[in-house]
Design a protein around this nucleic acid. Structure first.
Lengths: 350, 350
DNA sequence: TACGCGAACTAGCGCGCTCTAGTCCCAGAG
DNA sequence: CTCTGGGACTAGAGCGCGCTAGTTCGCGTA
């Protein structure tokens, strides 16, 4: 046997001890063991204790696969996420307790270089998850629709309009609105938006920028340049801005990582933040709160998003509710990278 | 029925279509369908095509749970990782193809605030994974040993010595050795190590620092201060260094994030890198290669670590090999944050 | 014609569990 | 004393698949 007492009996059968073994050892039927271990009524307190003791002593562990097979449902929410997005990590973290509260489990499937979103989602479906939660998917509508035809599908933090697909997302427009309003309140007019291209939420954030600028009568100051979701993208955009010789007095970046790239580049070029340029990020990642970065940003509510996504999934599973869209408001977190507009009304880099 | 055509037949039976359905529709036995779909010999080319066509048309998907239940093995490697560590993401990314190459699947289980490592690992065991890969676990030896008694257990990127547990890790000592040698070759003597406390690999990196300094005859310049694994930790350590008034000429940080915290703090205090102080990180995360950060760092070989960890797992599963330790060499990546020692031999912050 | 043989296909058990439809037994009512 | 009712427990049929041990059939061979 293995190193420790009571190890495996047979090298080839894994953890090995089954409900049958427990039943035999406890001198009861397998069904009763099942009743006890599922904590459902139908057994006396005495046998309950006895069976539990025997199970523990034998080191019995219910086989999840068999358990799920027997039930008619899997009790599992499939979550497809990308290993690259730090924010996905925050969401996954919140999804566990949220699912738990609704009596569901979480099944994880990563999207990686050798494993595209479709593959990731299908693996979850093959495990018979009862609903699919896709974090910021870039799947084409047709692919999403195909998945949604198989199992209730919830898209998180990305706006899509696909039949059968529910959406739970941050109000990206409003997030950027808050950022721009904040900057305008500080006296800024030359507010530039470094956008996220085709990334999740990028289109909405851009719209939020445009409409707010227009609302404030700053249409003539509209300026959008392409950034992206990494520090590198932000750095590139900032260089472009510097090279143009027309530095705005304020910048809203697509997300915190992008903003950090901007920040580093500006520092490196001797441009002071917020004295010369104000900067706002998006996400409120751990980076942002770092004391020496101290980034003003728009916080996405990971807790709210996760809770509502799970709730939407459960609703669709249990009541067959129709798919809908849930928008979660973000919050502006004012820190140290935004300040009043500099005295000189027009700045030029020398 | 669902919104789209061809939705589910019965609201309560999930994806619903079984092998039985395919068999009936194709006019063959269930066993033959199984043969065709598993791509094993025993069916004519004609029926193969026919069955496959019918399966596709019905939208049949093999049920993973049932499939695994029948076989005596699950074909699954359980991976427990933390959502907080970016490097875990890199590892997970590489684990997929590595497992695939060995004919295994990956089952993911995250460690989160409401879900400790033990819970995460046990969930994997309940799914009857054939081996457990734990990324940088902080479990106590007794807990690890308990897990290892149930299923072959591989600890990644953390050094542990527990009976029954295999280890696949970076040669942390050597990584820091390379960093210190590099700095010494540039003329540095006052080399400080900002260490990682109790984090995975921290003890070894510290040892690497000490032994290399000693080897170079720099014992009198030994200086270690507590950092950690986040930017915040690095920033705090850098502040401590600045406050001490005794700035070293070079710093090796526990990891890249910590190094970034240091870097930002130094910039902020007007200390130039690498002109005044050289800095080396660890991990070669995406942060490090950012052009304006351009951090000299020690690259951990995610590909090698993942491949070897999977191989170790498979060996133990298939041949019952005894647990062992595999050490993967890291590589120094020289970038822009290290340079020759400044002219003034002793520096003092004013 | 009979026989052998392999390719193509099928019957049916078993995996470890859940769950429905019971059986058994004992206390209390009639 | 019988009858009822309900709590405690059991028998056994699946769940969807893999797999072993067949069965059938067509064809080449003696």
């Amino acid at each position: 046997m293995a190193a420790s007492r009571g190890g495996r009996r047979n090298p080839m059968d894994g953890a090995g001890v089954t409900m049958e073994d427990v039943a035999r050892e406890a001198g009861v039927s397998r069904a009763l063991v099942s009743i006890v271990l599922r904590d459902v009524p139908g057994a006396s307190e005495k046998t309950r204790d006895h069976v539990k003791a025997v199970a523990a002593q034998l080191g019995y562990r219910p086989d999840h696969r068999a358990r799920l097979l027997g039930r008619h449902r899997s009790g599992m929410l499939g979550v497809s996420f990308s290993v690259k997005h730090t924010f996905h990590g925050d969401l996954v973290e919140q999804l566990y307790p949220a699912a738990d509260a609704e009596g569901f489990e979480v099944g994880l499937s990563a999207v990686a270089a050798t494993r595209d979103e479709e593959e990731s989602a299908e693996s979850l479906i093959n495990f018979r998850c009862e609903a699919l939660l896709l974090l910021g998917p870039t799947l084409r509508p047709a692919q999403l629709e195909k998945l949604a035809a198989i199992v209730p599908t919830i898209v998180m933090v990305r706006r899509v309009e696909v039949p059968g697909v529910s959406v739970v997302r941050t109000d990206d427009r409003d997030g950027v609105r808050q950022a721009v309003d904040h900057l305008a309140a500080l006296g800024h007019k030359d507010i530039c938006h470094i956008h996220g291209g085709t990334a999740a939420g990028a289109a909405e954030r851009r719209q939020g920028y445009r409409s707010t600028m227009k609302k404030l009568g700053l249409s003539s100051h509209l300026r959008e340049i392409l950034g992206g979701l990494t520090e590198e993208d932000g750095a590139r955009a900032a260089e472009e801005l510097i090279a143009s010789g027309q530095m705005p007095t304020a910048i809203t970046a697509f997300n915190d990582r992008c903003a950090l790239g901007v920040l580093i580049t500006l520092w490196d070029s001797g441009i002071k933040v917020p004295e010369d340029v104000s900067l706002v990020g998006f996400d409120d990642s751990r980076l942002a709160s770092l004391s020496h970065v101290d980034l003003t940003t728009v916080r996405q509510d990971a807790y709210g998003l996760s809770t509502l996504a799970v709730r939407a999934a459960v609703q669709r599973i249990q009541t067959g509710a129709r798919p809908g869209e849930t928008v979660v408001p973000p919050t502006l977190i004012v820190r140290g990278t935004t300040g009043p507009v500099p005295k000189r009304t027009s700045r030029r880099i020398k």
